[in-house]
Amino acid sequence: MFNEIQRDAFREIVNMGVGKAANLLNTIIGHHIHLNVPNLRIIKNENLDENFYGTNVNLSAVNLAFNGFINGACKLIFPTGSASKLVSLFTNEESDLEDFDAIRVGTLSEIGNIVLNSLIGTLCNQLKVNLSFTVPTYKEGFVKELFETSSPEDNSILILAGTTFIIEEINISGDFVLIVELGSLQLFKDLIDKYVGEL
């Protein structure tokens, strides 16, 4: 699906975006925050592994859809328990607050928004492409519900990048997922090739 050079180029762009996100998050919360993306997996939506987090794990996702030259969406996904812990670290609340109320959802949406915007913004800048975006949304549910598609034939490509937030020596793992519609895949690969060619 992606050759090794394209993978490396994508990983590099993600790392740039992640660095930018960490810098901004540092400024907002005043704690040292480190973000890293240790692994990258590219799979077809239809092959979405149910063991992505396990079928019965409740997940929290911040979603940002885009369209234009390429169509798709990106998500930042955490097991809901981890998401709540992350919000607690950002707000200095007690970490055993399991209730994920509307206010805490708003906070997670902002954290997700910062990470997604940095990643997608870097991607747009590096690939020199303009996209239109929807307002970020929050969704909670099992993995199947988060990746529900309008069409049964939808076989988008999912690029899964495992992301770890390290705040005050506490690691919280989530996933950055870039969903590229199949019709846009070749264009996306061409953009990456062009980026590599200009390096």
Binding site: L24, I28, I103, G106, L116, G121, P136
Partner: peptide, 24 residues
């Protein structure tokens, strides 16, 4: 402040929407 202006500046470049949550 940097934490607001740097994010709003991206908007003027056509960047994705940005959220400022009530809790923060």
């Amino acid at each position: 402040e940097f934490k607001y202006k740097s994010r709003i500046d991206e908007i003027f470049q056509g960047g994705p929407p940005t959220v400022f949550s009530s809790q923060i």
